[in-house]
Nucleic acid binder design. Structure first.
Lengths: 347, 347
DNA sequence: TTGTACGCGTTATCAA
DNA sequence: TTGATAACGCGTACAA
């Protein structure tokens, strides 16, 4: 029964099988704005397609129509729950729009970002969504800018999530305000001497969070001395290392403020390894509020970033935004205090 | 300077600009197996491409070549760290092969799986990797089978990761053996009366793990009574609910054995909420050993599943496997006991 | 409502 | 080594 054809049946095959013209078959199967097909023929065509096991060739359609139904997404690392949540959000939103996702991960090679954009450009994806942070390093993103520029010039749309990028629509996370609010909240609970695990200086997100926090602390009369501001990787290991440095240096602090949740986890790990009790001895906060960490004990105080909303806004912008950078929006980041930062007595 | 062309320059444009034929331009840029291009012209063409901002149209290439450089991946939910790890593994492996990934998530609608396969089929992806579990429900996968069959008939390759699927190459996880070994290890630490959070009966993975565990426990002289085997969703919430049921029923047990890590987390949450101390009162185990959970306290005893290897094998199989189901391989799942199951005294 | 014929951007076959 | 030219599978003006 089952034909063991090695190559796919085409629309012509279907048309022939149904005894209609190619055009009619096309209209019957994929519909048409202007034309309509008689019920009789329509059925015949659909039946033929069914029995031949016809599946339209999306590449051919893309050529003929001049547009694909896929959007490109570039994330750093799906292993990081923060990115995973966003990617998942975009994927779900895309499915609702009957769009598909081609996804690329940069991993360690941020400098490959430009090449990924170019590749997605080649695929003529409807839009490209860049997720992550920007490195304030001119060299690192040199290729990226020209890649984006070329893509945009042909009418491509680029959206950046959680990173500011001149000339493209961004969904900005208000990291400064969130960190600032966190500072207030912590002071409100009696914390005075934070240890800031600031992450890499050139990492735009980490920098914004660190800056927002430090600024507000200073305003509140508790400036953070340089000694209490440690730069390390924006990863769990970075948190571990930062914490270790602080402990080895014998610093004095009442709360560890990490610029990301996973960094906070690393710090938590190192603290418990070194006999520093959290939250008894010192408090701990993260940033991001990734849902996977809901089971960490003590429950982690952090700043909530609405990844779901971020993803949805991003896709909307990618589809309907102006595409020239004027469509940028900002989502709020709101502190949420949990058990890792219990109220402190005294001053 | 920058032309504000609205549509992309084509290879013809490049050829004209370089003063060569279309064929030569093609060979110069994308190379050719059989032909080679003179250095002089080659340079001219490449320069022209550069200055015009030419990016090859992958869709057109796919048509002409009859093959794409992308592979399709279908996962259930990127929010689940287990899937995220696998997806990330596939993505990195794909990048090494200069392949791209188009990714689809089924979310709640497992019945949509067939449609996703068909869609990926339309895109003429090189191969499709299905990640997840199979539901032993004939209706649920009805469409899926025919979708796969059609795709395979045209020469498409399908690989299943962590799920057995007749007729396609699988990377099988030896859940039974892993669960069996876990049973032994637990008994070795003095546990005798497990509470099995078995997950859904029809969920192939959950079922295999539950079966493997129960069988070995019985062999070791500690059969699990039906009362101590609770079926609930294969999610964190499922773990929470299962645990609650057990507590409400006032069951007696010395270790909670969940069929997945996230279920174990749910159970942990409910236990602490209800005043059941883990691991003091009872032990707890999961399954999967997802790396994100490294910071859960007490550290979770579980069964390690090598997701990285799973992903790599999967892609290899997708690219070079026989594609008829005879290429299936199995990866081991090995118990790793941590603090959530300390040795128990006495019987 | 249906059919004819051209174009989408590329690769590959065949001559030159 | 280079250049015409025919596919590849489909959408869609245009004509009937």
């Amino acid at each position: 029964m089952a034909r063991t054809t090695r190559s796919a049946p085409t629309l012509s095959d279907v048309a022939r099988h149904a005894g209609v013209s190619l055009a009619t078959a096309s209209r019957a199967i994929n519909g048409s704005e202007t034309r309509t097909v008689g019920e009789e023929l329509r059925r015949r065509v659909i039946d033929s397609a069914q029995s031949l096991g016809y599946a339209p060739n999306a590449n051919a359609q893309a050529m003929a129509r001049g547009a694909t139904r896929t959007i490109g997404v570039v994330v750093h690392d799906l292993t990081d729950p923060y990115f995973a949540e966003i990617a998942d959000g975009i994927a779900t939103a895309a499915t609702e729009h009957k769009l598909f996702l081609t996804l690329a991960t940069t991993g360690n090679k941020i400098e490959a970002l430009g090449d990924m954009v170019t590749a997605l450009d080649s695929m003529r994806v409807r839009a490209i969504i860049l997720v992550g942070a920007r490195w304030n390093d001119p060299d690192l993103h040199r290729g990226l800018h020209t890649s984006i520029e070329q893509y945009v010039r042909r009418g491509g749309r680029v959206v950046a999530l959680g990173m500011d990028f001149p000339g493209v629509d961004c969904v900005h996370i208000d990291n400064e305000a969130g960190a600032s609010a966190l500072a207030e909240a912590l002071v409100g609970r009696g914390y005075r001497r934070p240890l800031l695990l600031a992450g890499p200086e050139r990492h735009s997100t980490a920098a914004a969070r660190a800056a927002g926090f430090a600024a507000r602390m200073a305003e509140l009369g508790h400036p953070i001395p340089p000694t209490h501001r440690i730069g390390s990787d924006f990863t769990r290991t970075g948190g571990t290392i930062g914490m270790r440095l602080a402990i080895e240096a014998g610093l004095d602090y009442d709360v560890v403020v990490a610029t990301s949740d996973v960094m906070a986890l690393g710090a938590l790990h190192e603290a418990s390894r070194s006999g520093v009790q959290i939250p008894t001895d010192v408090g701990l906060t993260g940033f991001g509020d990734v849902s996977t960490l809901i089971d960490v004990r003590p429950s982690l105080s952090t700043v909530h970033v609405p990844t779901r909303q971020l993803a949805r806004l991003g896709l909307d912008l990618a589809l309907h935004g102006p595409g020239d950078g004027t469509g940028s929006v900002t989502v709020e980041a709101i502190p949420v205090l949990r058990d890792s930062t219990p109220p402190r007595m005294g001053a």
